[in-house]
Computed example of a mutant assay.
Amino acid sequence: MRPLARPPAWARPLPEANPPADMAIYQLPTGTYETPAALAVRGGSFRDKRQFAASAVLVQHPKGDLLIDAGFGVDVAVHIAMLPRFMRSAHHVARTAREQLDASGYDRGRLLGVVLTHSHWDHASGLDSLRDTPIWMNQHERRHASEHWDGKVFRHVSRGHEIREYGFDDRPYLGFSSSYDVHGDGSVVIVHAGGHTTGSVIVFVTVPSGARYAFVGDLTWQLDGIGRRVERPWLMRKLADHDPAQVRQDLLRMIALDGMMHIVPAHDLRAYGGIPRLTPEPAGQPL
């Protein structure tokens, strides 16, 4: 399979960011589910089984903390049973995001909310045990989740939640036309990347060391999409993406940034390397 043409590398300075000294990020892995590489990336093999990550990421900031996605919830088996049969697969469950937060002694009152990269089941399931935490969504994704068939699990787990709707400023950010600077210091910036779903987003995070992260959700399911410049297979683009052409455009934007920041596709376990865990996994529960 021929890869996408390599875009020119980003040549302008990276946006200014002034993260406070006590800002930090942690990964909260909640489980995995199995997917053949042939269904994940163009040119993949059915013999190559990928363990798709279902994780949350805690972003601590003195003005208030956020979770990026929610991972698997306590009732993940129920949520998987709500999916069409062709979407169900073998899965492994670890501790939920809430269980990991509580085990660390974390004060959940610090949480401003859960920012969903989009509303699909494997990003929203863990909302079922975070009832007292608001859900942050833009209007595009809120509408998508309320109307589309793939929002069934989200509609189930979001009952009773406060939903805080945020908007985007007409302020370009790294080639994306609109953005939302959460704390006003450039440390957490959300951009609209509405190809996978109409309100999909990428969350850019800069930490005090100067390291930059791009949590790209399902723009690509695996790092192959960035490193090998490959899209999802044709059938999966048709089934999974609202606007495949927009996904391709945004994927090329991220490929142009490769090497300048740590790009994290939500479902690639390898992408979380180097991000510390909030608490060690109990013995017998490696992920």
Rank of each mutant, 00 (worst) to 15 (best):
P3Y: 07
Q100P: 14
R42A: 12
W221Y: 06
L116E: 03
V264Q: 08
V191E: 02
F204A: 06
T220K: 00
L252H: 04
T279P: 09
F52C: 13
S45P: 14
G44S: 11
V157E: 09
L287S: 12
F176Y: 13
L66I: 05
M236R: 07
A70I: 12
T197Q: 11
V57N: 06
A214I: 03
Y26T: 09
T30G: 05
G186L: 09
T30W: 05
E34M: 08
D65E: 04
D132T: 00
A54H: 05
T117W: 03
T279I: 15
A40T: 14
D169A: 13
R164N: 03
A40R: 04
L223W: 01
A9R: 14
D268W: 11
H140W: 13
G184A: 13
R232V: 00
D241M: 11
D250S: 01
T197H: 11
I25Q: 10
H120P: 00
L83Y: 07
A90F: 03
S146K: 09
G194K: 02
R159T: 14
H192E: 09
G217K: 05
V157T: 10
I68H: 11
I80P: 05
D150W: 06
S89M: 05
S178H: 07
V188A: 12
D102H: 15
S119Y: 02
Y272P: 09
R143K: 14
I255Y: 01
I263M: 00
L14A: 06
R270D: 13
L251E: 00
P84K: 12
G184S: 14
L252T: 05
S55N: 11
L257G: 05
H262F: 04
V115G: 08
E147F: 07
D258I: 01
L239W: 10
R42M: 09
I202V: 09
L269C: 13
L111G: 04
K238D: 02
R6V: 13
P7C: 06
A214Q: 01
H118M: 02
F52Q: 13
W234C: 01
D243S: 07
P286Y: 15
G151W: 12
R2I: 09
S45C: 10
V216I: 15
Q27D: 07
L127E: 02
A40F: 03
I135D: 00
G109K: 07
G274I: 14
W121A: 09
S125Y: 01
V189D: 06
T32I: 06
T35R: 07
G109W: 05
G31T: 13
R277Q: 15
D65R: 03
H140P: 03
D185R: 11
P13Q: 10
R228E: 01
S200N: 11
V191S: 04
G210E: 04
P13S: 08
H192R: 09
G160I: 05
L278W: 12
P8F: 07
D150F: 09
A21K: 14
A283H: 12
A145P: 06
A193W: 05
G225P: 03
L28S: 03
M137F: 10
Y106W: 11
P3L: 06
H262P: 06
W234P: 03
L66Y: 08
T30C: 10
M82G: 04
P244Y: 00
H61P: 05
Y180T: 11
R42E: 13
